[in-house]
Every structure is written in structure tokens, then in C-alpha cells.
Design a protein around this nucleic acid. Sequence first.
DNA 1: CCGCTCATGTAACTGGTTACATGATTTA
DNA 2: TAAATCATGTAACCAGTTACATGAGCGG
Lengths: 184, 184
Amino acid sequence: MPGVPRSDLEGIVLGLIWSAGRCTAYAVRRTVQRSLSAQWSGSAGAIYPAVTRLEKRGLLRAQKAATGKRPSRQLAVTPAGRQALRTWVGPSLSEAAAEIPVDPLRTRLRFLGVVPAGRRSAILEEARAVLSRQLEAVERDWEARRDAGDPFSEAMARGVLLTMRARLQWLDELREAQQRRGSR
Amino acid sequence: MPGVPRSDLEGIVLGLIWSAGRCTAYAVRRTVQRSLSAQWSGSAGAIYPAVTRLEKRGLLRAQKAATGKRPSRQLAVTPAGRQALRTWVGPSLSEAAAEIPVDPLRTRLRFLGVVPAGRRSAILEEARAVLSRQLEAVERDWEARRDAGDPFSEAMARGVLLTMRARLQWLDELREAQQRRGSR
DNA sequence: CCGCTCATGTAACTGGTTACATGATTTA
DNA sequence: TAAATCATGTAACCAGTTACATGAGCGG
């Protein structure tokens, strides 16, 4: 009954508009699209319906602010929306902390046994290379956000960095174990 | 055109049946339900349709093996299914490695700024406590799998463990930064 | 004037979710 | 015999996906 984001995307949309003060749905879309994390495509078919839902529940309010001839719907978070955002990040945070985040890499490696033993090392090797390249991008992203000022945005990027490092370390362990097994 | 799992859940179903040799859809469901990772509910409404799809595409085959009076559909992976599984874990693994895994905790903390400054420390504190408790369960799970023998199952549990440790470390960093900010 | 970006949407589809339903078998 | 578990499914719903459509404004 109380207005609460019903999906993480809704929470993100609400959060991004809150931290921008106000902006268009298109701006939200761009941010989601540009974020390194590939979870959400940031497609129009996801963002606009989400905005509509949030408006209908009174968590967002739009004001037509025509810049010149062109109409634009500037979105802002209502007081109820701010409250909803607070209960989304606050109380549900512990639940989120207990969850084991999904990792498609881990999911696939669970069944590496189906691949002929001779090819496993090469596969792990390539995954490691790709991951370590991505890690560099993540590092740069973190540094950029650190310099940008927003401590929570920086914190998020830092979290991504630590996660990616842990994954890389894990892949290294696996590669080593695989090589040991191969040489026996 | 080639038979490939169309979602990670399909891949998991195929993989679990492959590693079991053969089993019922119900057994798959139980395994998914019992897994620590809460990504998929393992609901009947997800598993049975997935099995049906995989059967239709020739990746799974069922043989009625009635035990006593009760009919049971024993599922097995076909050669095409094994091939599909291989291309799912193999070539797509590098793509998966580049992805930044989603983390609902990280997603929420991105907007911690909306919470009154005075409450942030307490929230982080509680999340840390919950996470560290979960970490113990993950540790036990890893040890159990290590003793069980399947090296890939162990590897997956190990990946979970490293990820959770990284998250805990991250939360500790955040708590420290938050306290520094609070005491200034 | 052509193409790019800004900006807002809709439509068809899909793969999940919860909840419900049913019946056999096992266990307390 | 009552309750739990095994086992298989269906139905309604929902929040994403891709792809399509439209139009204004702007830089080359």
C-alpha cells in the first residue's frame, strides 16, 4: 500500500531523478544506458513505463517546462517519492546485503566440466584476459567518480572495483588449479 | 538457429540435468530452490516451462520410468543438448567475464544520500552484521562442497565466498568513511 | 538538405513471478 | 489417518526485452 519502488529499476529511476534534482526521462535513460553495469538496457520500453507508474503512484511529478518552442517534461521527486526512496535504500538494505549476487560467469563455470578437459585452460585464460581488460575500465571509472565529488557515486564505483578484483583473483585460482590438474 | 539455452535459467536446468546424468524436473527444482543464491525462486512456473522448451528444441529427452504405480518423467540431456551446454559455458564465458555483475546492495547504497546523515552509520552497521552472518553460511557451504568432490561445484562456492568477502571489505571501508565524516 | 542527437512514446513478445490445483507416496 | 513431501503442472500477472514510429532542433 505505501508507495515503494516495486523493482530495482524503479528505485534507480527514482534515485537518479532525486539526485539530479530534476531532469527528463530521456536523461535518466541515457544515464542507465551509459552505466558500465549491463544489467538494464535502459531501453525506452523500460524507462518510460517505469516513469508513468511512478507518476501514477505519486512518487514523481512532471512539470512542463518548454525550452523555446520545444516541450519537455521535467520530472521531480515528490515528498512521498523521497520517503519511498528512503525506505527502499534503508530497511531493504540488510536484505540486499544477505543476498548472494548473481554472476553469469560463476553460473557458467559451474558447468565447465561439460567442456573437454583439454580446452578448459584456454577458456579460463581468455576469460581472465577479458576480465582484466574490463578491470582497467572500472578502475578509470572509479578514479573519475572520486574526482567528481559525489561520495556515494564513488562508493558504488569502488564496490564494483572490489567485486571485479575478487572475480579476477578467483579466475586466477581456477586457472592454477586447472593447470595443476592438467600436468598430473 | 543452433540449439542454445535462451536464458541463464535454461542453461542451469540443462547443466543440472547433465551433471546428474538423469533426474526429474522436480529434482532440478529442489536444487535450484535450495541453492544459497536467491536469483531464481525455483518455482514450478519457471522450471516446468523451461523443461518443456528444452524438450521441444531437442536438448532434453524424457523417458517414462514408472517406479511402482507412479509415473515419473526421467529427463536426460541429448547429444545436441550437451553441445548446446558446451557453447553456453564456453564461448559465452568471456562475455560473461566482462559483465559487471548486478548487486542489489550496491544499487541501493548508490542512493544512501537520501537517508538522513545521522542514520547512515546505523544502516551500514546493520548491513555489515547481516552480511557477515551470511558469510559464515557461505563458508560452510564451500567447505561442504570441497569435501564432496565435484571440483566445479567447489569452484563456484569458492567464487561466492570471494565475492562475499569483497562485499564485506567494501562495507567496512564505507563504514569507516562514514564515521570519519560524522566525527568531523 | 542530410543525418545526428534530443525526446517521447507504443506494440509484440518473453521469461520470469506468485498462487492455485491435483494426486500419489511416505512418515509421524 | 493426518500431515508432509514427491511430482507435475496451469493461470494470471508483470516488468523487462527488441523493434518500430514520430517529430523537433541542430551542425555540417
